[in-house]
Design a protein around this nucleic acid. Structure first.
Lengths: 226, 226
DNA sequence: TTGTCGGCCGATCGCCGACAA
DNA sequence: TTGTCGGCGATCGGCCGACAA
């Protein structure tokens, strides 16, 4: 998942440390949020926390739920080992309060009307102006087809129309398929994004009590970074 | 899964050895049909086959596909150990060419019309006479609701009607739901069964190249049969 | 006897403007 | 500006007898 898209999906409250920064790791806190008790036999430390260096960060998304999460590799060695080169294409500063990288985004909580099978999606005016391509307002009605990609790169097509009295922006054809495929319900959020090149992206955030497992999966460092 | 229902689903070509019978086990033949190479470190034998005694048989069905399969535990010791008591309710001789135990069954390969979403199921006359409860032919049309259980015990309800010119037996309401839930397509088969008590059962056989994994799962013998 | 087809009817889907918050 | 509603037309699911293999 591209870090900019990932960040827009996760929201501004999610703070991910930069590679090379120093953090404290609290094994017990980690364990309490896990679905099963992790194997701490390799952690030869009696203190309740460990000073670590962030050695790698992976931005990931669940294939099932589109839920975005990060996998953060920690190195407890002291003094910290020399920093390995950051792979090409991974901007530094992401998640550390850095800039948005030219990506503009807009999130909306789905109303019951948005999530109902029978309806479309009411596009807030600010979202349409900020994110979507401009409509031809001389047409009657102004209408276009927009193509957006989700965090997996899957492409979704929506009919975007400006109609009704008073006039408002709506997504109609294609929207209910998106809602059903993503299993969205009222209260969930969708995030529309546009990058520098004008490409559109869409992410989802869920309200449900669904919680990631935080289980350990071995990290395989990039080639040449051994 | 009840052995009688299992046998009817598997068809007459499936032969399962009785408990206590002597069979030859061919490790290589087993391995060639497995999805991964089994661990044969415990088989201390250089010959290509091992004379075994069938110590246990379990009749199982896949929760996903309803595919029935058997798990056969083999004991290579010689001379054969004393036979443990057969658990109550497991008839001997099942699968060895024995009787049908009062279960009558009828299998039909689904036609395109049977599997189409728009249609019902044409019940062959012999199947209706042999398996289904008798209709009240004085009614116009003769119709009833039948309730059948699949290999998991899940209950399915079908509307059974005798209509059309010429008259024929059909399953209508409830049938397409069954086809969709079981993911049946033309060419697959359904098996209707009736036991001594008049209870109805239904099984499915698939034509697809789907193949069970034949992987090893430890067998836990019934209590008291150690 | 039974597989397939077209007809037909009701349910659902989904687009629409009205209207009010 | 935008959330919800009722209307309504299009589509689809599914029950029917006709007919032929």
């Amino acid at each position: 998942v591209h870090p900019y898209v990932w960040k827009a999906c996760a929201g501004t409250a999610a703070k991910i440390p930069a590679i090379g920064s120093r953090v404290y790791y609290f094994p017990q806190g980690h364990a309490e949020q896990s679905s099963c008790w992790p194997d701490f036999s390799a952690v030869l430390c009696r203190r309740s926390f460990v000073l670590c260096t962030v050695s790698a960060v992976r931005f990931l998304a669940s294939p099932d739920t589109d839920e975005v999460f990060a996998q953060i590799a920690l190195d407890p060695r002291f003094p910290p080992p020399p920093l390995v080169p950051v792979p090409v294409g991974t901007p530094d500063g992401v998640g550390g309060g850095g800039g948005s990288g030219g990506v503009v985004s807009f999130a909306k909580i789905l109303t019951p009307s948005d999530a109902n099978n029978g309806g479309g999606f009411s596009v807030p005016r600010f979202c349409a102006d900020l994110i979507f391509p401009g409509l031809d307002f001389k047409a009657e009605p102004p209408v276009q087809t927009i193509s957006v990609r989700d965090v997996h790169g899957t492409r979704w097509v929506f009919r975007h129309i400006y109609r009704g009295t008073p006039r408002r922006h709506l997504l109609t054809t294609g929207w209910s398929k998106f809602v059903n495929c993503k299993k969205l319900v009222a209260g969930d959020s969708v995030v529309f994004m546009k990058n520098d090149a004008g490409e559109l992206f869409v992410g989802v955030r869920r309200t449900g009590r669904f919680c990631g497992s935080m289980d350990y999966v071995p990290y395989r460092p990039p080639a040449g970074a051994g």
